[in-house]
Write a protein that binds this DNA or RNA. Structure first.
Length: 437
RNA sequence: GUGGCUGUAGAUCAGUGGUAGAUCCCUUGAUUGUGGUUCAAGUUGUCGCGGGUUCAAAUCCCGUCAGCCACCCCA
């Protein structure tokens, strides 16, 4: 019985790895120019971390957390034991607090990339193990609307850096924690009695998380929502002013956005600015990335600093790598990476294998990507076929004539040109020829 | 978690009750030591898994698992 990879997981095979490297190196380079440093946190954390940060009632915590049950002692509380991380923000904040990073830095700019896990039913753009690139700016210095603008701009710039076009940025502000509470109450009051005919799902959303109704896909629900005049009525004066500053910052950076009062986020910790970037060609899972401000989370997780009365602020985002690759594919931007080899050494006869082996070693010592055919004693012709398949730019021929004269044949596989080179100068000569290409 | 569609060779798929197929890939060959193109030949299978109906099942029925798409959720 063949064993295959678990549901909702996938292998990244060698033929696709170049695409991943491209995303990773582009991201690393860009993060550097914005002053972000990489942080790596464990793939699993105490279950309680996610329950406390994301919100007990959220779907992610309720149904999608992949817990490591064997590690939980019998009779222990639900918060005991471990869970695979479903997102990156909570672990980063945990680390920020644990090492008291705010003590050294007024503003900590951190980025991460790696696997996340959610026990969802797999679908296009939705896996149980998926990969995110994310950034978080945390600290007393993070309480500034221009930082919101900068982070959103960085997120957009990353996507453009990957080669993506035609994505859409939506922004909104949820206001302070208090604004959020007031807004929820107002929404419940407004919608009371109006959604009863919509079915159980809407009713349960009404109870669980009223905000969800705002971006519902159900046409009947949309109709009800559209009768509401939301605008910015849910924001306090300070919240409104903050949002205005964010928008001004975005304008200054030339970032194109759309304000949508229906944009909400599924995780409890978001306050003030939230944003989402979507690409229409992806089907139902169209969000390439999303993020927002989460000022309350640091203190909620036991952080903050009594010596400094100002609140520690935080803002961040995450991008879904698989979704970015899907979008790039949809836009025809994924080019199959060709196999690559500097030189393939062909042995004239099986007996020359030892000699060939030695030459390959010398070539590699000289910094060249070199290879040969092992142990099969295959015909000349077959070895050339193999060289071709491996994408060899040159072939070195080690045959009877060459061995006798202490030379090697060097063939340029693009032009077909072939020269005789002194055996001792083979590495040197080949390096020179490769440099010329 | 709910619904719909689909599981046949390494890959993409045809085959609707009667001997398991195509194309690509792969292997070999087209006069002794030269690749890419072409031509010829060859190998590939618990027909996802388990049960049932039938003289006979890849094909019909039930269950199960997996994939895809949508809902939900979200990156």
């Amino acid at each position: 019985m063949k064993i295959s990879s678990p549901r909702g997981t996938s292998d990244i095979l060698p033929c696709h790895i170049a695409e991943w490297h491209q995303l990773e190196t582009t991201a690393r380079t860009l993060f550097k120019t914005y002053g972000y440093s990489e942080i790596r946190t464990p793939v699993f954390e105490d279950t309680g971390l996610f329950k406390r940060s994301l919100g007990e009632s959220t779907e992610v915590v309720n149904k999608q957390l992949l817990e490591i049950k064997s590690q939980r002692a019998e009779g222990a509380s639900d918060d005991a034991g471990f869970a695979l991380r479903p997102e990156g923000t909570a672990p980063v904040v945990r680390a920020y607090n644990q090492y008291d990073l705010g003590r050294e830095e007024f503003l900590s700019k951190l980025f991460y990339m790696g696997p996340m896990f959610r026990g969802e039913r797999p679908q296009k753009g939705r896996l149980r193990e998926f990969h995110q690139i994310g950034a978080e700016a945390i600290g007393r210095g993070a309480n500034h609307p221009l930082l919101d603008a900068e982070i959103i701009a960085l997120c957009v710039k990353l996507l453009k850096g990957f080669g993506l076009n035609d994505f859409k940025l939506k922004i909104n502000s949820l206001g302070s924690a208090e604004d959020k509470k007031n807004f929820a109450n107002w929404l419940r009051a407004e919608l009371k009695g109006k959604i009863d005919h919509l079915g159980d799902e809407s009713k349960s959303q009404y109870e669980r998380n009223v905000f969800r109704l705002l971006d519902s896909k159900d046409p009947a629900c949309k109709e009800v929502i559209n009768t509401l005049e939301i605008g910015s009525r849910h924001l306090s004066e300070a919240g409104l002013k903050y949002f205005e500053e964010v928008k001004k910052g975005l304008d200054q950076l030339g970032v194109v956005y759309e304000v949508s009062s229906h944009l909400v986020r599924g995780l409890d910790y978001y306050t003030h600015t939230v944003f989402e970037i979507a690409y229409a060609g992806l089907g139902a899972q169209d969000a390439l990335g999303a993020g927002g401000r989460y000022n309350g989370l640091i203190e909620q997780l036991g952080g903050g600093d009594r010596r400094f009365p100002e609140q520690v602020g935080a803002m961040g985002f995450a991008l879904g790598m698989e979704r970015i690759l899907l979008a790039l594919e949809a836009q025809g931007k994924l080019v199959q990476a060709k196999r690559f080899l500097d030189v393939f050494v062909v042995a004239g006869k099986p007996e020359y294998e030892t000699e060939t082996f030695g030459l390959v070693h010398e070539l590699r010592q000289g910094g060249l990507a070199a290879d040969m055919d092992f142990g099969r004693g295959r015909a000349f012709k077959k070895q050339f076929e193999q060289a071709n398949k491996l994408g060899a730019r040159f072939v070195i021929i080690l045959g009877e004539e060459e061995l006798k004269n202490a030379t090697v044949g060097v063939k340029n596989m693009t032009t077909g040109e072939q020269t005789i080179v002194d055996r001792k100068k083979a590495v040197e000569e080949l390096s020179r020829q490769l440099e010329r290409l």
